[in-house]
Design a protein around this nucleic acid. Structure first.
Lengths: 223, 223
DNA sequence: CGACTGCTTGAGAGTACTCAAGTACTGTGG
DNA sequence: CCACAGTACTTGAGTACTCTCAAGCAGTCG
């Protein structure tokens, strides 16, 4: 994803004196590491908060519950991603580890005590917030205007792109995917079967896949 | 260093007297006013941008188009609202005036030349971005997990709340509402008819309504 | 091996969509 | 003031896509 034009390019952070330059290094200098096991809650919905988080290892989902149990997964986060950025004094979503994970946690109000590194992290947080807003708009388009087939295709494309490697592992269950895409678990399953039958993706087991026809997948996503 | 010609003299906000305190005042001190007539485009999708906008009078919609013509309205903006905050070097959406409107425009990269007022506006922009992200998450939940009836109820509740008065004017057409809620124009129309039949809202013409049963509407929204 | 959890598949139902026609509101010209 | 045209909105009938409910299959752990 592209960077906001008004924020300094990453090169601007680089000084001749070996300052930390990756977000992981900046965050690592300030945040404290926490580990969570599969399914464990990192924070709760409506919980008061002054924290910001970064995935170091594993994967995290942010979910929101409606009174009657309907659930929506706002997003999935992987190593390097910042999360818990929702505005306001309380978290609008809860966050849970999708597998055994390590997470860095920093108190936002304390950043000013960390001098240069704190300021850098602050800028990183704002940049991440802007990017999250962009992804959110993309996802709204997906939810509002795309078919189940296109939603699942878009999701697989997204996950594959983030992981980068030829074969992609799905850290989440079908139910999580369904709640992210506004579908039912059965429909997600059917669409994956369909995508496979159409030769768009190839699965190995139900949690591991490879993109078989990148061009056709790209068409589905752009559509 | 050259300053954009349309920006007012910097001296205007360095005086110790009468510091602006509302976002409209801060923005007004820095931004330049533009007027747009009904339906006129304020900026285009994928257009390069370094601008931030505030509605002064009228109403604005932010829309995104898919290649095949499917449209999604990302949001509606009213006097006082900041818009055009989508991250990245280009606008992820276009913006159009819903009626004759006046809009303040400021160059983001120029804010640092405006001293205190510029910093304040910068903070306002970040705060607005965070709030927008929160609204975006709410809207994702609406799109992913709510019925057409609940979506329209939620929308009317939202608009009414923003306007505050007993009777609420709808600045947008049914098609805009449909594209915002991920429905068709016919379904929106049917749901409004239904809400009226159920005594939840009362319409006067097709662009003006009043909430008739606030408690039942609140139930539908919270649900 | 059996139990458990997660995933897939099938049949039928329901919500929202598509296509089509009809109604209301607005502005223009006679 | 009314006729007319144009746009926006509503309503109706039939269809399609996704959901619900139910059963079967697969991988995992004791």
């Amino acid at each position: 994803m592209s960077m906001p034009a008004f924020l300094p390019d990453r090169a601007a952070f680089t000084t001749p004196y070996a300052q930390p330059i990756t977000s992981a290094e900046i965050f690592g200098a300030i945040g404290s590491a926490m580990t969570y096991s599969d399914g464990e809650e990192i924070y709760a919905q409506d919980e008061e908060t002054d924290m910001v988080y970064q995935v170091q290892r594993g994967a995290v989902r942010a979910s929101r519950l409606l009174g009657d149990g309907r659930r929506q997964i706002a997003g999935f986060y992987y190593p390097g991603d910042l999360f818990g950025l929702e505005a306001g004094p309380t978290h609008r979503a809860s966050a849970e580890a999708l597998c055994d994970s390590r997470v860095l946690v920093a108190r936002r109000s304390a950043l000013k005590h960390y001098g240069e590194a704190g300021e850098r992290l602050e800028r990183l947080i704002w940049r991440a917030t802007g990017q999250e807003l962009g992804r959110c708009h993309d996802h709204m388009m997906l939810l509002a205007r795309k078919s189940a087939y296109e939603r699942v295709a878009g999701f697989l494309s997204d996950v594959a792109q983030r992981q980068g490697s030829a074969w992609t592992e799905l850290a989440m269950r079908r139910q999580d995917i369904a709640d992210h895409l506004g579908l039912t678990i059965e429909t997600v399953s059917r669409m994956i079967t369909q995508l496979q039958a159409d030769g768009v993706v190839a699965l190995e087991g139900c949690r591991r896949f490879r993109i078989a026809a990148p061009d056709r997948l790209a068409d589905l996503v752009a559509a």
